[in-house]
Each structure stands twice: as C-alpha cells, then as structure tokens.
C-alpha cells in the first residue's frame, strides 16, 4: 500500500521498535505501517468511532478519545514519538496540545497544511477562501479553525521554548526546498525540547 507523502516522511523519522503515540490516527494507516515495517509499539488516538472500528479491524491498538480533553491519561515521557498529523489546524487548544505532546513524548512530529501556499494566496486574492487538495472544505463546513503558515508555527514553537529539529515541506508528494512557504502545501516538523 502506498503511504501518503507526509506519512512517509514521518515513517522515515521513526527508528525501529520505538514507542509511538499517533494522535488523530484516523483509520490507523500510519500505525499499521509502522507496526509492520518498524515493529513499533504504541497506540493511536482517534475521536471518530467508525475510524476506531477500522483500526481494530487492522489490528492497530487504538483508544477512542477527544484530543481537546488533553493527554492527561498518558504519563510523562511515556512515548519516544508523538505524532500529530494534519490535526493541529482543527484543534481549539492548539498551544496546549503542543506542550502536552512534548510532555508525553521525547519527540513530537507535527504536520499541517501550509496556509501560505501560493494557490491559497491566489484564491484569497480572487476574493474566496481557499479550497484545494490539502484543504478540501468550504469555509462554512471546515473543521479547520486555526490556520497557520510555516513562520507562524515556528514562532509558536519559539514562544514555548520548543526546538525545531527538522522540517520537510511538501507539494504534490515532492519535497520543496526553494521558497517553501510559497511553494509548499504541507509542512512536516520534528520538534523537541532543547
């Protein structure tokens, strides 16, 4: 099975046999991949019960839970890697989840659609909210409430004393190195405590 480009970047960052927590794990695709190819141990956390059933069918340990309620049920440094994949922009408690991520995990991996992507800018200049492959919602039904660009995210990390260890920006499954905030539609960060 072909892995979504950002999930592939994440998978490459996770060493074998790590303890992994995948927040907003969806149908468990990434966890299933990591369990098979990297022999990782851990859990997915997912709010949607139908996705939970898919995880169970795939043999992925999954805990149905609302991330907005926090990660209080998970102990300090109980995981090597905590993944938050394309979920940050849909969370109310954005700052809190970042801090919690690095309490529970040694390292965090965060991905989000880059609002600064040129197509988004173009649609805004044309007078409409952006709708695209990475942002497939209309303004009135989007779950995404906290948009940011690369610089915004990095500033929030700086404010909370979070170190950015690696950054990969993607567009159409390809890595973007030149003008990433303009040409990249999806950002993938590896973060930790300095």
């Amino acid at each position: 099975m072909k892995l979504r480009a950002d999930l592939k970047v994440i998978a490459d960052w996770i060493p074998p046999k790590s303890r992994v927590l995948d927040l907003g794990c969806g149908d468990g695709t990434l966890m299933a991949h990591l369990m098979r190819d990297k022999r990782v141990q851990g859990y997915g956390v997912e709010i949607d019960v139908d996705n939970v059933v898919k995880c169970v069918a795939a043999g992925v340990p999954v805990i149905q839970s609302d991330l907005e309620a926090g990660l209080a049920d998970f102990g300090d440094a109980s995981f090597d890697h905590v993944i938050l994949s394309q979920t940050l922009q849909a969370m109310r408690n954005t700052e809190e989840i970042l801090i919690e991520l690095l309490r529970v995990g040694r390292e965090g991996i965060v991905t989000f659609p880059n609002f600064g992507y040129w197509e988004n800018r173009l649609q805004i200049m044309q007078g409409r909210m952006p709708v695209s492959e990475t942002i497939p919602y209309q303004w009135y039904n989007t779950p995404n409430i906290h948009w940011c660009m690369l610089g915004d995210f990095e500033a929030l990390c700086a404010k909370n004393g979070i170190a950015i260890r690696e950054r990969v920006v993607l567009n159409n499954d390809e890595r973007v190195r030149f003008l990433p905030n303009l040409r990249g539609s999806l950002a993938v960060y590896r973060i930790g405590r300095p």
């Binding site: 141990q41 859990y43 019960v49 939970v52 059933v53 995880c55 169970v56 992925v60 340990p61 999954v62 805990i63 149905q64 839970s65 049920d73 998970f74 102990g75 109980s78």
Partner: peptide, 11 residues
C-alpha cells in the same frame, strides 16, 4: 496503557 499493554478502546 500505563502498564504498556495492548488495548483497544471504543465508546
């Protein structure tokens, strides 16, 4: 989870 056991939970 705290004991590192394999568990799945649905509500």
């Amino acid at each position: 989870v705290a004991a590192g056991k394999r568990v799945q939970y649905a509500q």
